[in-house]
Design a protein around this nucleic acid. Structure first.
Lengths: 200, 200
DNA sequence: TTGAGGTGTTGCATCCATTGAAATTTTGCA
DNA sequence: TGCAAAATTTCAATGGATGCAACACCTCAA
């Protein structure tokens, strides 16, 4: 039962995100103030904070959820499934989640540019990803109880995601197309995974 | 010729760092204001910003330099030196640089705790490290011209550092001793490196 | 030794994100 | 319709950061 109350809140939330991405796109992140965004979405500045905890969160509001979705790929290890297969599922799920954008094409492009451009946003993004990795490593360690030490689990996840992340960002900075980037991600993953065979 | 002026600046800078770590240690990062720190170091709040660009920089003032030092290990590839050896030198240089603290024991401990504890600091740290990685990958790609594609270079560096970083942080969270952590770093590095043999 | 020119410091005003509290409005429902 | 809960707004305050102009102090040449 989505009451009128809930629906209105959803609309306001949407309006905020939309206003934000429009203004960020036009003027840049730092140059856009919360007051601007709130005004455009027709709420008071104070109320903004009952929708998002911070200005950054406008950019990352769905990120935690997306990461979590991808991470679930690791949780369900079928019995005896080899490490490499689990890791490959993780990569597939991540690519999948990258394709499944909540945002429109234009907004997604703005976001990517901003994250690459604004140091504070880049830092925040890295932090979110890192937390996920840590959880993943612990999960993996648990799923392979006895077979994989914590160091090994951490090394495996760190190597895999580290390789993909770095390769993708390097590609983004070189202004590659989306398809090229997906390809890069998969290739980097294969390099890291094939390297991890020794753990299998 | 270090004039009186320069020496005084150095002393003030030192005083700021010391005051900051003392107060951060006692009250925590968020709970300490720049005004507190400036007062303790006997300068005005405004002047603080001609010594450090931000509050964070008190924590990270020497980090960029330390990372750069470690990174130099990669620059000088002896002719024909295999990738794996270069990577191992990188790990050694990093461990070395970790041992070579500018700060005292107590301050280093406070810093570690803060970075692990304060999300904003953790994010900043990850960001600094990430930038270094990106530079490293490009350097590596250059040193192995023709032999190593950018994706491969990125994957190699990402895998290596990703593995070590994640393993170390997991260890830190589990409150391991310094020696145990060094060991973990080396083990994680070996896992990643041995995995990368296929690139050799 | 001295004073001119430069460099470092400071106070002040201002911006902006963020938060608390109290007052007010809106909405859901009896 | 009218009340209680929830959402919104207004207002005030904090803290980091920055620009600016006045001021204090070194340094060095004459």
């Amino acid at each position: 039962m989505a009451g009128l109350r809930e629906r209105k809140k959803q609309r306001t939330r949407q309006a905020l995100v939309q206003a934000a991405f429009q203004l960020f796109g036009e003027r840049g992140f730092e140059e856009t103030t919360l007051a601007d965004i709130a005004a455009q979405a027709e709420i008071s500045t104070r109320t903004f904070f009952s929708y998002f905890a911070s200005k950054d969160d406008l950019i990352f509001h769905d990120t935690e959820e997306r990461l979590e979705t991808a991470a679930r790929a690791v949780v369900r290890r079928t019995p005896e499934e080899p490490l490499i297969d689990v890791l490959r599922r993780l990569v597939d799920a991540s690519v999948e989640s990258a394709l499944n954008q909540t945002l429109g094409k234009k907004e997604a492009a703005v976001r990517t540019r901003l994250i690459l451009t604004e140091p504070s946003l880049q830092a925040r993004g890295l932090h979110l990803l890192f937390d996920t990795q840590l959880r993943l490593a612990r999960t993996l360690h648990g799923s392979f109880a006895g077979e994989l030490s914590m160091v090994e689990a951490a090394a495996a996840i760190g190597a895999l995601i580290g390789a993909v992340k770095l390769a993708v960002v390097a590609d983004l900075q070189d202004d590659r197309s989306f398809d090229e980037i997906l390809d890069t991600a998969r290739r980097a993953a294969e390099i890291a995974i094939s390297g991890l065979r020794s753990l299998a």
